[in-house]
Design a binder for these strands. Structure first.
Length: 430
RNA sequence: GGAGGGGUGGCUGAGCGGUUGAAAGCGGCGGUCUUGAAAACCGUUGUAGGGGCGACUCUACCGGGGGUUCGAAUCCCUCCCCCUCCGCCA
């Protein structure tokens, strides 16, 4: 969430940011109305509490001395009764004020290109050579089904649409990619491996910004009086590791990486990517999460993005990096780079990673602070995260980019130690 | 699922309903002493919001949320979490 002080004192700046995101700035009006009333009332309530505390203290003293206190007691009672209704009103305003500010998105960083949608994103760089084919390259789902390593048909039977079965070398390839990515990030990039809970509570979802606004995108566990949500990304449990904590300056930066399955309802995407692994209700992802000092966060965003890109470099997959424009960025993000990998059959770059700096937006929601050495008070840390990478999409990209005319697929060098083979062929026997 | 016990400041741990934002110890920070260090001694040491140039001051916070009361860390209700025993179970 945004700094309430900032919203109040630099309202124009916030309105400008909302407009750049293509939003109606009127959501601010309601917040400011409630917040102003809340502050006015808080002032009154605090003054009356002070009076009440003084009187109560007096009662205590008199009683201790064995004197009669009924006079002051009556006064105190009157004051106290007067406060009660105001406190009720204040509680209500507190709740509504928070409800409103939780719906306001983050302010884009000044370096973010202005734009209304994905057509106005800015390409930052391209890496790798596009593969040349002497035949018409097939889409990954056709390759996978033909090789007997992917089965969408039966996945539909046992779960529904947007699920997949990985089989044989397909399953092994998925597992190889997970291990390859985790090894790279832990051994060479300095991240600590985490395996977190896959279901989380409402507070965690609110901390990273999925709730309250995007509940429709989440799977929720219903047959339990407790409330659990399936994680849509490891960002949620991993960022919340330090929720409501005050870290020491010397603990920062903290780098975590986590492999988890991710679960998304994909509500409203009915026509999109209905075939293949691109858009699934359940998919695997290796996530990178950073907790850093505010002054370092943009430098850290660059290095995090490079850490994710390194996976594609080593796999030999061509990709490009784009800076999302203001209109295409996620709710909580201040700046986002998408990494897009080349899919030959579609002749398109498609998102395989999204790397964001949230600045203090999540830290403020989740109350993640740090203390500078020798300084009084605390500051909010900055959080970042990025996919490093989406595993299913990486597998798809490998199938498409390294497919051969005979239907087999060459395994990238970097994966061979994990796969034990250098090529997936038809009817491969385990 | 059944029966008990407990959640207090960075940690350990006190706390008759009335100067308790909270004893004490440890840790941390500053100082004295020392060639240096240790030990010892002295001082200091929570978070958030509001007011004041400032010294400072007010309000809230003892797992979360309600309630009783002039007054709640202390009493009541409720939820959450942790521990022990029994049962069940990967």
């Amino acid at each position: 969430m945004l700094d309430i002080k900032l919203v109040r004192e630099q309202t124009d700046k916030v309105i400008d940011a909302l407009k750049k995101r293509g939003m109606n700035a009127s959501i601010l009006d309601e917040f400011l109305k409630i917040e102003n009333e809340r502050r006015d009332l808080l002032k009154v309530v605090e003054e009356e509490r002070q009076l009440r505390n003084r009187l109560s203290e007096e009662v205590g003293k008199l009683k201790k001395q064995g004197k009669d206190a009924s006079d002051i007691l009556a006064q105190a009672k009157a004051v106290s009764e007067n406060i009660t209704s105001k406190e009720e009103r204040l509680r209500d305003l507190d709740i509504r004020s928070v409800q409103e500010i939780l719906l306001i998105p983050n302010i884009p960083h000044e370096s973010v290109p202005a734009g209304k949608d994905e057509t106005e994103n800015k390409e930052v760089r391209r890496c790798g050579e596009l593969p040349q084919f002497s035949f018409k390259p097939k889409p990954h789902d056709e390759i996978g089904e033909a090789l007997g390593i992917l089965d969408f048909e039966r996945a539909g039977k046992i779960a529904g649409s947007r699920f997949a079965i990985y089989k044989g070398m397909g399953a092994r390839l998925e597992r190889a990619l997970i291990n390859f990515m985790l090894d790279l990030h832990t051994k060479e990039h300095g991240y600590t491996e985490i395996f977190p809970p896959l279901m989380v509570n409402r507070a965690s979802m609110t901390g990273t910004g999925q709730l309250p606004k995007f509940e429709d995108d989440l799977f929720k566990i219903a047959n339990d009086e407790r409330e659990f949500f399936l994680i849509p990304t490891a960002e949620v449990p991993v960022t919340n590791i330090h929720r409501e904590e005050i870290l020491n300056e010397e603990d920062l930066p903290i780098y975590y990486t986590a492999y988890t399955p991710c679960f998304r309802r994909e509500a409203g995407s009915y026509g999109k990517d209905t075939k293949g692994l691109i858009r699934q209700h359940q998919f695997n992802k290796v996530e990178l999460v950073k907790f850093v000092k505010p002054e370092d966060s943009y430098k850290e965003l660059e290095s995090l993005t490079l850490n994710a890109e390194e996976v594609l470099k080593r796999l030999g997959l061509p990709y490009r990096v784009v800076a999302l424009c203001t209109g295409d960025m996620g709710f909580s993000s201040a700046k986002t780079y998408d990494i897009e990998v080349w899919f030959p059959a579609q002749e398109k770059y498609r998102e395989i990673s999204s790397c964001s700096n949230f600045e203090d937006f999540q830290a403020r929601r989740a109350q993640i602070r740090f203390k500078r050495k020798g300084k009084k008070g605390t500051e909010f840390i900055h959080t970042l995260n990025g996919s490093g990478l989406a595993v299913g999409r990486t597998l798809s990209a490998i199938l498409e980019n390294f497919q051969q005319e005979d239907g087999s697929v060459i395994i990238p060098e970097a994966l061979r130690q994990y796969m034990g083979i250098d090529r997936i062929v038809m009817n491969y026997k385990l």
